[in-house]
Design a binder for these strands. Sequence first.
DNA 1: ATTGAAAGACCTTGGCG
DNA 2: CGCCAAGGTCTTTCAAT
Lengths: 160, 160
Amino acid sequence: MAAEIDLDRTDFAILRLLMKDAWLSNKQIAAAVGLAPSSCHERIKSLRARGVLLGAHAEVNLQAIGFALEAVLFVQLGKLEIEVVDNFVSATAAVPEVRGVFLVSGRADLVVDVVVHDMEHLKAIISQHFNRHAVVQRVETSVVFNRKQQYGMPLASSDM
Amino acid sequence: MAAEIDLDRTDFAILRLLMKDAWLSNKQIAAAVGLAPSSCHERIKSLRARGVLLGAHAEVNLQAIGFALEAVLFVQLGKLEIEVVDNFVSATAAVPEVRGVFLVSGRADLVVDVVVHDMEHLKAIISQHFNRHAVVQRVETSVVFNRKQQYGMPLASSDM
DNA sequence: ATTGAAAGACCTTGGCG
DNA sequence: CGCCAAGGTCTTTCAAT
């Protein structure tokens, strides 16, 4: 499982560019990595076919459209039967307000990132999707004051 | 601050589509929302100009290219002078292995999501970028067993 | 793997309802 | 605000290397 796919520095350069800006044109990327547009196009197709490039997503300013409150939930679950847990993870990830779910080791079992309109909305989400479930033992809620997201390659350019 | 921008259902539909797949062509989006391509194009330009659409980023299968280990760090900081804290947040977000940083209320002050090659790499990151800093009092590390990310609009389609 | 060329599709703007 | 039309640009394929 998790077959290792090896990429050369050009592939990494393409991925790095697309992670920063998925709206770059093929022509722009080709120029940046020093390839002809057709070669670059082939590389990108190959990266997609090999399951390295999974897709692209718009980054939206959710604050600007009324989602003024963000929170991180630390969820403790009961008896950890893997199937039940995975189902709950999937169900949680399917909640529109949920941005990400992490099943983790340690004090909390789940770390959940949610975006909501206001406190009442947050209360509704927690009560509806967490406190209601038998598998959930406890939810600790942290308000997010500030957040920064990184869209680059987890590898300094100097490393390749 | 955080001026409220109001969008109609068509704007939401466009955003919803682009959040799921930023590589949809303007023509495809126009067809999906029932507009002429030129009208749709104008809407998207406007969304960008108003700061709602911030950009787009490729989703890359990091597991497939050798980043086999993901962790969440819960960081406790010392005396919380806002300027020092914000600087540390920015510095942390600039570390290539860091995917996201959340400054939160509650037990932990920072929640940090990192992606690394292996345990040694994780150790290096923590020791280099966290334990070394005077502002950091304690780091609790949780391994990520499973994760799901949500790229949709935090709002069910039926709500609009 | 990479390239150049060609055809077709798309983006983008401007003028008009 | 939305639509049509036109020009210019880009994507996409393919034969050749």
